[in-house]
Simulated scan of single mutants.
Amino acid sequence: MHNAAARIFCVTYLALLTGCVTVGPDYQRPVVDTPAAWRFEEKEARDLANTAWWDQFNDPVLNGLVRTALDENKDLLIATARIEEFFGRYFSTRGDQFPSAGGSGDAFRQRLSEKGLTRIDGKNNPYNEYEAFLNGSWEIDFWGKFRRATEAARAELLGTEEARRTVVLTLVSAVAAAYLDIRALDKQLEITRRTADSRKDTLELFQLRFQNGIISEVDLSQAESEYEDALARIPDIERAVGQTENALSVLLGRNPGAIPRGLTIDELALPAVPTGVPSELLERRPDILQAEQALIAANARIGVAKSLYFPTISLTGAFGTVSTDLSNLFTAASRTWNFGVPV
């Protein structure tokens, strides 16, 4: 009884010590000087930062394209899947802080050599053997290795979420920019075609004047050159429209094809861009937040590395039964057990 009480006391004492020591530095956010107050109404700034800014263009087609990209874009789907991956890594790492348990069972028939080193006098040969075991182990986190690893895994998970937000912002910006480029090219194409039609009318007028001897052939050649120049610009613009449509189709997660049109470039409402926004707003940028989480993870892994300088302390144990007769497998005489404190 005395030995059992001593063992229980030692285990309890070690368990209490697991929360007392954590090697490695705690993360401290670097101090950055920022303005003490907003230079304009805070509510206005927060409303602007929290809004779906592409809605301010007042183009339902653009809004639909953004929604399609958020649902179908392959890069965004990959970023979302990586969050699930790092969720698994986090819970796997965190699980190392707790005891692990397992069980096994075995049944086999074996024959030993009668000429070998192992004597088989008085034994049945071959013979049956049945085993059933429960085992457990717990590496006590005395130096905070697993706590620091969990801290790093948590930061990596949060960094992955910020990476997904970065993909979202980049994707939405790219979709909106490509759509505006298409509408600008449409306007340019429209103007170029009107210019070609106008120069065609001018050329026809010059041809009549040349036929009547009013102008020289040089003036007629100049009018023909300007008309041909306007016509030559149309294929280049049409090709640019097609290339931009193809690029936008890739962002939408679909095969290259035509893109629906909404408001013209002149009808789109320009979003309001406030001035005087303090640098504190940069803390909401996902790429900056992702970089900070990477810094937190690296800082936590310093503690993991330092903990390797110290010995590990574990508790292991197993309990089971072994018998050559299945009917005696769960009798008291068949029991076997062991425990230890490996260091």
Results as ranks from 00 to 15, higher is better:
Met1Ile: 10
His2Tyr: 08
Ala4Ile: 08
Ile8Ala: 15
Val11Thr: 14
Val11Trp: 09
Thr12Phe: 06
Leu17Asp: 13
Thr18Glu: 06
Gly24Met: 09
Tyr27Gln: 11
Val31Glu: 14
Val32Phe: 05
Lys43Thr: 15
Lys43Trp: 10
Arg46Glu: 01
Asn50Pro: 02
Thr51Pro: 02
Ala52Pro: 04
Phe57Leu: 06
Val61Ala: 08
Leu70Trp: 03
Leu70His: 08
Leu77Arg: 09
Ala79Gln: 06
Arg82Ile: 09
Arg82Ala: 12
Arg89Gln: 14
Tyr90Trp: 03
Phe91Trp: 12
Gln97Val: 07
Gln97Glu: 04
Phe98Thr: 13
Gly102Asn: 11
Gly105Phe: 02
Ala107Gln: 00
Phe108Val: 01
Phe108His: 00
Arg109Gln: 01
Ser113Val: 03
Thr118Lys: 09
Asn125Val: 00
Ala132Ser: 12
Phe133Thr: 14
Asp141Tyr: 03
Gly144Pro: 08
Lys145Leu: 05
Phe146Trp: 01
Arg148Cys: 04
Ala149Val: 04
Thr150Trp: 05
Ala153His: 07
Arg154Phe: 10
Gly159Met: 07
Gly159Cys: 02
Ala163Glu: 14
Arg165Val: 02
Thr166His: 10
Val168Glu: 15
Leu169Arg: 10
Leu171Glu: 03
Ala178Gly: 05
Ile182Ser: 04
Arg183Phe: 06
Ala184Leu: 06
Glu190Ser: 15
Thr192Glu: 01
Arg194Ser: 15
Ala196Leu: 02
Arg199Lys: 15
Thr202Ser: 15
Phe206Val: 14
Arg209Gly: 02
Arg209Tyr: 15
Gln211Met: 10
Gln211Ile: 03
Gly213Ser: 01
Ile214Glu: 14
Val218Glu: 13
Val218His: 12
Asp219Thr: 12
Leu220Asn: 03
Ile234Tyr: 01
Pro235Lys: 06
Ile237Ala: 02
Val241Cys: 00
Ser249Gln: 00
Ser249Glu: 02
Gly253Arg: 10
Gly253Glu: 09
Pro256Gly: 11
Pro260Arg: 09
Ala269Lys: 13
Pro271Tyr: 00
Ala272Arg: 11
Pro274Thr: 10
Asp287Glu: 11
Ile288Tyr: 06
Gln293Met: 12
Ala294Lys: 09
Leu295Asn: 13
Ile296Phe: 12
Ala298Asn: 04
Ala300Val: 05
Phe310Gln: 03
Ser314Ile: 06
Leu315Ala: 06
Thr316Val: 15
Thr316Trp: 02
Gly317Trp: 01
Gly317Val: 05
Ala318Trp: 05
Leu326Lys: 05
Leu326Phe: 11
Thr331Gln: 15
Thr331Ser: 09
Ala333Cys: 07
Ser334Met: 08
Trp337Ser: 11
